[in-house]
């Protein structure tokens, strides 16, 4: 396994802005994500977290500035198998879709194989490996819609893992799952980050919980309010309100 170089930035977001219908949702964001990082994007609803994530994934284009993935401008970036993505709607997809767990994870290999190519033994081996990493191999022949929310979430992580990426983006992965499932889920993310040296970037609302898990917190409220360690973040934001949101940050940047 390659050594993790924490000083090396693999994602560089430089001075990006974005608007929906002339309303600015992101202003002059500059953010670096280094190899082996475990970063959480936090901020109030509508603060632009998902928009920022989508810009880093090339699903949206920023109006200004630049995004570099693995030292390459996102416009020229072709190595998408180095990036895994677990979308927010992973928990609200079409539950009647006729696909088994194995078929869903195999989809992750599809773009990698290229047009016209069929799946090989290696693809199937990687499917097995990814499902074993998330401890879902025994469910391989079950329909995805028949699994519990937490199990489905694991399958979507396996689908992201199956291209052997270096970084995985997760958009609110724990939304709507119970506490026990959340604990198992964070244990899995920790394992992926520490044992498999994967860089992780996630969006979460559960600040109290996430500060115990991640290495860095980036607080987004249209601009980058802070980018710091969880300890510093908690110290800076003094008091927490009931929702776990830092009061100071919310009040100073809300509704503008």
């Amino acid at each position: 396994m390659q050594k993790v170089d924490h000083t090396k930035n693999i994602i560089e977001v430089n001075d990006i802005s974005f608007s929906y219908n002339k309303e600015k949702v992101l202003k002059n964001i500059t953010l670096g994500i280094h190899q082996g990082d475990y970063l959480c994007l936090v901020g109030p609803n509508g603060a632009g977290k998902t928009t920022l994530l989508k810009i880093m994934l090339g699903l949206l284009s920023s109006e200004t500035g630049s995004v570099k993935l693995f030292n390459q401008d996102i416009k020229d970036f072709k190595d998408w198998q180095r990036i895994g993505y677990v979308p927010q709607k992973a928990t609200s997809f079409d539950i009647n879709f006729p696909a088994t767990v194995k078929e869903v994870v195999l989809m992750g290999r599809y773009a990698h194989a290229g047009l016209f190519h069929r799946m090989t033994e290696k693809d199937l081996e990687l499917v097995k490996k990814s499902l074993e990493q998330v401890e879902m191999w025994e469910y391989r022949d079950r329909l995805i819609g028949d699994l519990s929310g937490g199990q489905q979430q694991r399958v979507f992580i396996a689908r992201a893992l199956v291209t052997e990426p270096e970084i995985i983006f997760l958009d609110e992965p724990t939304a709507g799952v119970d506490e026990k499932t959340q604990n198992e889920f964070y244990a899995l993310l920790k394992k992926l980050n520490q044992e498999f040296s994967l860089t992780l970037v996630l969006i979460s609302h559960d600040i109290e919980r996430i500060t115990k898990e991640v290495m860095h917190i980036a607080c987004i409220d249209k601009t980058l309010v802070c980018h710091t360690s969880p300890e510093e973040y908690l110290k800076d934001s003094h008091s927490l309100d009931i929702s776990g949101q830092p009061v100071k940050i919310i009040t100073s940047h809300h509704h503008n």
Binding site: L59, K78, F93, D94, M107, L115
Partner: peptide, 22 residues
């Protein structure tokens, strides 16, 4: 047959398919 894989992925999850390079 040629685009089977891509059609399946896009039908299941258009966004993830796009990120994966389809």
């Amino acid at each position: 047959f040629s685009f089977y894989k891509e059609l399946v992925y896009v039908s299941f999850d258009e966004e993830a398919a796009k990120v994966s390079g389809i």
